[in-house]
Simulated scan of single mutants.
Amino acid sequence: LAALGNECLGAIRIVDNEAAIPVTSYKLLQDAEIKALAQEGATESVQLITKSHLSLTGASGKVGLYYEPESKKWFFPEGNAPSTHIVKQSHIRLKKIVANEQLCMLTAKNLGIEIPESFIVNVGSDNKEDILFATRRYDRKFDDDSAVLNGLRVPYRLHQEDFAQALGIAAGDKYEKNGAAYLKRSMNLLRSFSSDPIADQLKLWDICIFDYLVGNTDNHIKNLSLLYSKDLKSIRLAPAYDIVSTMVYDNSTEDMAMSIGGIYNINDIDRKAFEREALNVGFGKNMALKHFDKMVAGFCDAIDKASFTLMSQGFEYVDVIKQEILQKGGIKSYL
């Protein structure tokens, strides 16, 4: 933690008091350095990730960088400088995962789900080793009184807790087992602490529906978070993130990370299961199923629009991913 805790999620920083404090600045990254980051497993990539002191979990290598949208330049945060984006490498074991995630995120946005801004960084061809996935950090915020460093505005760090932390569940238990009712516990968490509990419960309900339809069986509780306001007086459900259709990969599990109506296997979940789950979490059946039916009805148009957007950017192969989602995700039962 002393080595990698300088730029954690949220506002907490974990530093070694005996270590030398580096000068706080933003260093411009050259194109060659960005391309090195895309080369997963390469020495330069590992060094950059380590130097960023970014403490994040997940399957792909990640680094926290600062992005200046007007110049489209990337900067490396040094010292106490906060990053603005999390940049993830493509993954050698999962084909086209960057395009997969961006397709899922845009589809979610088209269905009205709040997501952070994200985009694909192409540093060469569209091969998996030459692209990165950049997500704007929702736990970093610019204000009118933001400081300026090296000519760049410095964002504030907003605090967040993922649901495993907030519920006191160990990271190793982030996948629900034996009917532990993680969704019900998550809804109760929002009822108790959200500044707008009704709105946030419905947002979470929509996220769960979408995970099922798109075939995201990696929907564990560490991919859900509470986001605090700058003054720590307000708590809201954070935007949805880390949404990937895992079902398009042959070696992925068919069991959802949170049960729906007592069922884990995505192929056995149906509208009736969501009806049972609605009653389990304390929702009115009619309201819960109205959200479900609306999401199902709009899914194909939403993924078509997302696919068209990415294809127009040169990622023609997303149409294949789209077809696999329609064939293997939960949406297949309603086509």
Rank of each mutant, 00 (worst) to 15 (best):
S229A: 07
S25Q: 10
L232H: 10
I97R: 03
I209K: 03
L326I: 07
V87Y: 05
N6V: 00
V123T: 15
L65K: 07
M311E: 15
G79C: 11
T57N: 13
R140G: 09
I207W: 11
A147I: 02
A166F: 01
R13Q: 14
P116A: 15
L224G: 04
L167M: 15
I221K: 08
H291G: 01
E161F: 01
P197G: 07
Y228L: 13
S312T: 11
L54Y: 13
I21H: 03
Y66G: 08
P239T: 08
E40R: 13
A257C: 10
L65W: 04
L213D: 06
L202K: 11
D301W: 00
D162W: 02
G79P: 10
Y241I: 08
A2N: 10
A199Y: 00
G284A: 07
E70S: 13
L279S: 11
A297M: 06
L65D: 05
N251W: 08
D31R: 14
V123N: 05
L152D: 02
W74N: 04
Q160Y: 01
H220N: 10
I34G: 04
R13Y: 06
F299P: 03
K141H: 11
D162L: 06
S229L: 09
Y334W: 13
Y26P: 00
D16S: 07
P239K: 06
K305E: 04
I221V: 14
M311F: 01
K272L: 04
L4M: 12
S118A: 15
S252Q: 07
S234K: 14
E324A: 12
E7N: 13
G79W: 07
K96Q: 08
F315M: 09
A59N: 09
T253R: 06
G282E: 05
N265R: 13
I49L: 07
C208L: 14
A164G: 12
T24Y: 03
K233D: 12
G314Q: 05
L289E: 13
T309S: 09
L232M: 15
Y264P: 02
L226G: 04
A108P: 02
L189W: 06
I221Q: 10
K27D: 02
T309V: 12
A2L: 15
L224K: 12
D196W: 00
Y182S: 13
G58S: 09
Y317K: 13
I115M: 14
L226F: 00
A240Q: 15
I49N: 04
F210W: 05
L310M: 10
K177C: 03
D293C: 02
D173E: 15
Q102Y: 01
R93P: 00
S25M: 04
Y334K: 07
E129V: 11
S90C: 06
D126F: 09
K35A: 14
D301E: 12
G58K: 07
V244M: 11
Y26H: 02
S186C: 14
M247D: 03
A171N: 12
Q160G: 05
L204A: 03
V296M: 01
A134T: 04
S333I: 02
P69G: 04
Q102D: 10
G79Q: 11
D270I: 01
Y156V: 10
K305C: 04
D130G: 08
R140P: 09
